[in-house]
Design a protein around this nucleic acid. Structure first.
Length: 222
DNA sequence: TTCGGATCGATTATACAAAC
DNA sequence: GTTTGTATAATCGATCCGAA
């Protein structure tokens, strides 16, 4: 290396460094674009699977829902191996929606001071008797209980309904709210005091049971 | 071992919505 | 209208890792 070439080399070196310096933001931006593109693809998949409002999903939600979705896929695959008929899940989903409607009716009745409590109890009893139940539940638990006018129906869980759903079905997540899972909040219509059942010990603690009772993770609406 | 590209983590800037 | 909180993008230094 000669004294005359040295400055050129230094210049080339610094140019190369400068070039890298200039290129780095672009590379970094490309990288972020790749990440965001993949997140968008995931979002489309998740929105389709959970039928959620696309505009209300942030990146962390997308990742969370993706994890849930993959867990669902895995569990569904396992259920398929156990020869669970496909109609069962649809039946369970219907039951879950029915129960949620019952709770809504009950909440409405609570706000109607002018309503005769006997009439309200009769209505809820009727709904309870008409509760769609799987044949397996019927065999196991017998007929649904009858409410007395003085009882608070919402504290009662429909028989067989607590385990009526697979713990991580995408449709159930969708029907529960159109909401997402996060720790700390409470379900849409039941307070812990109003629903003193023990937490579901048989399944995934991160999934809420159909009554809206949260275990560790809770669906929050938005 | 050195170099260069890729990636990560921390920090800052910006935009936006909700609460007041 | 202002403040506050949150999400996202951008930037930058540090680190990792494969190729020469």
């Amino acid at each position: 290396m000669t004294a005359t070439t040295c400055p050129n080399n230094v210049e080339k070196l610094s140019n190369a460094k400068d070039e890298r310096k200039l290129r780095k933001p672009l590379i970094e931006r490309k990288r972020r674009e790749r990440i965001n593109n993949c997140l968008d693809q995931l979002k489309e998949t998740i929105v389709g699977a959970f039928r959620l409002d696309q505009s209300k999903l942030e990146k962390a939600d997308i990742l969370e829902m993706t994890v849930k979705h993959l867990q669902n896929v895995q569990s569904n695959r396992l259920m398929g191996e156990c020869n669970v008929p496909l109609g069962v899940e649809a039946q369970q989903r219907y039951s879950a929606g029915y129960i949620q409607c019952m709770h809504e009716v009950h909440n409405l009745l609570l706000t109607c001071d002018w309503m005769d409590k006997t009439v309200g109890a009769r209505l809820l009893n009727h709904l309870l008797k008409s509760l769609p139940r799987s044949s397996e539940d019927s065999r196991r638990t017998g007929p649904p209980p009858t409410l007395q006018p003085s009882q608070t129906p919402v504290t009662q869980t429909a028989p067989g309904a607590g385990d009526a759903l697979p713990h991580s079905s995408p449709d159930r997540i969708c029907s529960d709210r159109g909401c997402k899972v996060l720790g700390g909040d409470r379900g849409p219509f039941l307070s812990p005091a109003a629903n003193p059942q023990p937490p579901d010990s048989s399944g995934d603690p991160s999934v809420m049971d159909h009554t809206g009772t949260a275990s560790s993770d809770v669906w929050r609406p938005w």
